[in-house]
Simulated assay, not measured.
Amino acid sequence: MTQFRPCIDLHQGKVKQIVGGTLRDDGPGPRENFVASAGAGEFAGMFRGDQLTGGHVIKLGPGNDEAAREALAAWPGGLQIGGGIHSGNAREWLDAGASHVIVTSWLFEDGRFSEDRVKELVEKIGASRLVIDLSCRRTAQGWTVAMDRWQTLTDLDVTSATLDRLAPWCDEFLIHAADVEGLCGGIDGELVSMLGAWGGRPMTYAGGAASMADVEKVQVLSGGTVDVTVGSALDIFGGSGVRYGELVSWNRR
């Protein structure tokens, strides 16, 4: 059955909800839907109190390490951590309380997927502690993994064959649909259907969920094999489409 998994997105040390496609290393900052007054630890503590496991903390750029550590300390073993993770620091973040590390960009060299890098990471921490993030954008090929905070397309398309290839090296997949991330315009149903038809590893879909109908749609389209996160539409992040309490109840049904 599809479960709700919480998220804590960090940008410049604050919990934020942003429009994913507006992240840039140069030019104006990203379009922000919400900036929390509460710290990352407060959100993590709430998720802990409601026994929401398997959520993720994503560091969007520099200046977020302190806030990330605060979240992990508030819910040790209950959250995954992503953003700037590589073989040299993965163990450090697991020791800080993360259940898993989430990795995208470091698995690529000059935009090309590196088997050597994923093998190096697995040797350091084991496949059981690794989540591979296949954040992707719509392309002529269907969906293509985008690295560097969704700015740079890689040589890796999101297909059943790709999932088969990567599955032995990870415990889970996280899939951000970057083109709809933060827009509250509905999920990418075609992507969810494709992921659900594969179903070879636990996976979480993120992007565009605007209502409980979208959460239900993920369950239907994936046959209950894909979990979902809700960001900008959620009331605790300033949204009006979904109430946090509804999602907690959904998980307990």
Rank of each mutant, 00 (worst) to 15 (best):
M1F: 06
M1L: 14
F4V: 10
H11V: 04
K16Q: 11
G20N: 02
G21M: 14
L23R: 02
R24T: 12
D25Y: 13
P30L: 14
V35R: 08
S37F: 03
S37A: 14
A38Y: 02
A40L: 06
M46D: 06
R48V: 04
I58C: 04
G63I: 15
G63M: 14
N64K: 05
E66Q: 14
A67M: 10
A68F: 08
E70P: 02
A71Y: 08
A73I: 04
W75K: 00
P76F: 07
G83W: 04
G84R: 06
H86V: 00
G88R: 13
W93T: 11
L94Q: 06
L94D: 03
A96G: 07
I102S: 05
V103P: 00
S105R: 02
L107N: 09
D110M: 10
S114G: 12
V122D: 01
G126W: 04
S128M: 10
R129P: 01
L130W: 04
C136V: 04
C136K: 01
R137L: 12
T139Y: 09
T144S: 12
R149F: 12
Q151N: 13
L153E: 08
T154Y: 08
T154A: 09
D155Y: 10
L156R: 01
V158M: 05
S160A: 15
T162N: 05
D164H: 07
L166W: 01
W169P: 00
W169T: 03
E172G: 04
I175W: 00
A177W: 01
A177K: 01
E181Q: 13
G186V: 04
G186K: 02
G189K: 06
G189Y: 00
L191A: 01
A197E: 13
A197W: 01
G199Q: 15
G200I: 11
P202T: 13
S211Y: 09
A213H: 05
Q219R: 15
S222V: 03
V226K: 00
T229A: 14
A233K: 06
G238H: 10
G238C: 12
S240Q: 13
G241V: 05
R243H: 15
Y244F: 14
N251E: 14
